[in-house]
Measured scan of single mutants.
Amino acid sequence: SSRTRFTDYQLRVLQDFFDANAYPKDDEFEQLSNLLNLPTRVIVVWFQNARQKARK
């Protein structure tokens, strides 16, 4: 499967949200999905990866 290429804007929004809340609710994932024009699944995985990185 091909990797999603995030724009700088998408990454900034995701990172800002993550800094405020590492565990979004379903409706928040949906809002981010609509805002960033990305599939919810891609955003869910991004947050999983970000939490892994933050733990190191």
Rank of each mutant, 00 (worst) to 15 (best):
F17L: 05
R5L: 15
Q52A: 12
N37D: 11
P39A: 05
I43M: 04
N34C: 05
S2W: 06
Q10P: 00
L32H: 01
L14S: 01
T40E: 05
R51C: 08
V42F: 06
N49D: 13
Q48Y: 04
I43R: 01
Y23N: 13
Q15I: 03
F29K: 04
R55C: 06
V45A: 12
P39Y: 00
P39Q: 11
T7Y: 04
Q48C: 07
D19G: 04
T7H: 02
R3H: 15
Q15R: 07
E28T: 06
N37T: 07
D27Q: 09
A22Q: 09
L11T: 14
Q15C: 02
Q31L: 06
T4K: 02
Q15T: 09
Q31W: 06
Y23D: 12
K53V: 10
A50W: 04
R3F: 15
D16K: 07
S1V: 08
N21T: 12
Q15K: 06
N49M: 06
A22I: 10
P24K: 01
P24W: 05
R3C: 15
N21W: 02
R55H: 14
D19Y: 08
A22R: 08
Q15Y: 03
N34Q: 07
A20K: 14
L11S: 13
E28L: 02
N49F: 03
P24I: 06
D27H: 08
F29D: 00
Q10I: 01
Q52D: 15
D16G: 12
A22N: 12
K25I: 07
W46M: 01
P39R: 06
A22S: 10
N37G: 11
K25W: 03
S33G: 10
D27R: 08
R3T: 15
F18E: 03
T40A: 09
Q48W: 03
D8I: 02
Q52V: 14
Q48N: 06
F17Y: 13
D27W: 08
F47C: 02
Q52W: 07
A20M: 06
T40K: 15
T40Q: 07
L36M: 05
E28Y: 01
F6H: 02
P39T: 07
E28P: 00
A22D: 15
S2F: 07
F17M: 11
D27K: 09
N37P: 01
S33F: 00
A50Q: 07
N49K: 12
L14I: 09
V45P: 07
F29N: 03
K25G: 09
S2T: 15
K53M: 12
A54I: 13
S2G: 12
F17S: 12
F29I: 14
L11A: 07
L35W: 08
D16A: 05
A50F: 08
R12Q: 13
A50L: 08
F29C: 05
A50C: 11
R55F: 10
E30V: 10
L32S: 01
D8S: 09
Q10A: 02
E28Q: 08
L36K: 00
E30D: 07
N21E: 06
Q52F: 07
S1I: 15
P39E: 11
R5C: 15
L14M: 12
L32M: 12
T4Q: 10
A50Y: 07
R55P: 13
A22H: 09
F47N: 00
K25S: 09
L36C: 05
Y9M: 12
E28H: 04
R55L: 12
R12C: 03
Q31M: 08
D27V: 07
D19I: 02
Q31N: 15
N49S: 11
R3W: 14
Q31E: 10
K53L: 12
I43V: 11
T4Y: 07
R41S: 13
W46D: 00
L35D: 14
L32F: 03
S33L: 00
F18G: 00
A50I: 06
V44G: 13
F17W: 07
L38Q: 08
S1W: 00
V13M: 15
Q48V: 10
K53P: 06
T7K: 06
V44M: 11
D26F: 05
L14Q: 03
L32Y: 07
W46P: 00
L32K: 00
N21M: 04
R51L: 09
K53S: 13
A20P: 03
N37W: 03
E28R: 04
L11C: 02
D26V: 11
S2L: 13
L36G: 00
Y23P: 02
K25A: 10
R55Y: 10
F29Q: 04
A20R: 14
D16Y: 01
R3D: 15
V44P: 04
V45W: 09
I43E: 00
K25H: 06
R5V: 15
F6N: 03
N49A: 07
Q15L: 10
L11E: 13
N49T: 09
R12L: 07
W46Y: 10
Y23L: 08
N34P: 09
D26K: 10
S1A: 11
D27L: 08
V42C: 09
D27F: 06
W46Q: 00
R55D: 10
D27M: 11
Q31R: 12
R41I: 13
T40P: 11
P39H: 08
T40I: 08
T7M: 04
Q31K: 13
Y23T: 11
I43T: 04
V44L: 12
D27N: 10
K56G: 11
A22C: 08
V42M: 11
L35S: 12
K56D: 11
R51F: 03
V13W: 01
Q31C: 11
T4E: 05
N37E: 11
F17P: 00
F6I: 08
K56C: 15
A20F: 03
T7L: 05
Y9K: 14
R41M: 12
F29P: 00
I43H: 00
Y23V: 10
T7E: 12
D27T: 10
Y9H: 09
L38K: 03
D26C: 03
F47M: 11
